[in-house]
């Protein structure tokens, strides 16, 4: 049995693209790019499954692999650090050459076997898929392989539990309740005014500044940048815009507003009123 012309065309288009995408996995610097490449390969595989008279598997491929597995990969990538580019310099001596040689060897052996092997004439699945493909699959799955099916079910439950256990973080101290955190915050004001944080919600970044990007500190009513208005992650990563740069860029605005800044005074009280009054009392 040979394939139809349409299928041949489909294959001719998809196969080279898939190989290129797979090579993208091998060569992409950023893991996210690699993941996108793999998603492409998998979706293409789903199409090929359907072409290969396996519509059910094609759907499952899309749902499980592209929908679940690859999304899980992307989640973890985000968690681990999406921007961490993978250095491609090799650290293990000779590993690159060994890897390339072995990969090429594997390719040679596999292709050699496939091309040299003699296959029987293809039968096709018309007979097996007579009463739709999922029904045929179900008959085999719940007939011949019912035990394997159940074992795999156990495996899945176990894997789910394993995921829970592995990512579970053991609590080392007592639970930090909301009440506790509130108390701590108030207590901190009394002990160390230098490191105080306002009791009210933090000011949003970019308020009263020239632009409202996340990395730009908000300006206080006095025109001074408020460090803590920038998200902590950006501060730690060193990705916040320097206050000096901000001030330098907005000098005219600040200077123009600052002297007769009656509304600014009032505006300052809005985000920091509670904090200031508390400060006044504690001093």
């Amino acid at each position: 049995m040979t394939t139809s012309g349409g299928e041949a065309a489909l294959f001719a288009v998809l196969a080279p693209l898939m190989v290129i995408a797979a090579l993208g996995l091998l060569f992409a610097r950023r893991a996210v790019h690699a993941a996108i490449c793999v998603v492409f390969v998998m979706v293409s595989l789903a199409i090929l499954y359907v072409a290969n008279e396996a519509p059910f598997l094609g759907i499952v491929q899309v749902v499980v692999y592209t929908g679940a597995v690859m999304m899980l990969f992307l989640f973890v990538l985000m968690l681990v650090g999406v921007d961490a580019a993978d250095s491609l310099t090799e650290t293990i001596r000779g590993q690159r050459w060994i890897g390339v040689l072995l990969g090429a060897g594997l390719l040679a052996v596999l292709l050699g076997v496939i091309t040299r092997a003699t296959f029987p004439p293809a039968v096709g699945l018309e007979a097996a898929n007579a009463a739709t493909n999922p029904e045929g699959l179900a008959a085999v799955l719940f007939g011949d392989y019912v035990l394997a099916m159940e074992v795999v079910g156990v495996l899945l439950v176990t894997a789910a539990l394993a995921g829970l256990v592995l990512t579970h973080r053991r609590r080392l101290g007592p639970r930090r309740t909301q009440r506790l955190q509130a108390r701590e915050r108030v207590a901190q004001m009394a002990v160390d005014p230098a490191r105080r944080r306002p009791l009210t919600p933090l000011p949003a970044p970019g308020v009263y500044a020239q632009n409202n990007a996340m990395d730009t500190p908000a300006l206080g009513p006095d025109g001074q940048p408020l460090e803590h208005s920038v998200p902590r992650v950006l501060r730690i990563r060193g990705q916040r815009r320097s206050p000096v740069a901000v001030l330098g860029a907005q000098e005219t605005l600040v200077q123009r507003i600052a002297p007769e800044d009656v509304p600014a005074e009032g505006a300052r009280e809005v985000p920091g009123a509670g904090a200031d009054s508390t400060e006044g009392e504690t001093r």
């Binding site: 898939m18 190989v19 797979a22 890897g99 990969g103």
Partner: peptide, 12 residues
């Protein structure tokens, strides 16, 4: 081909 590329990825 896909299998070989995957194996090479694992190694490199």
């Amino acid at each position: 081909i896909l299998f070989a590329i995957g194996a090479t990825t694992v190694m490199l």
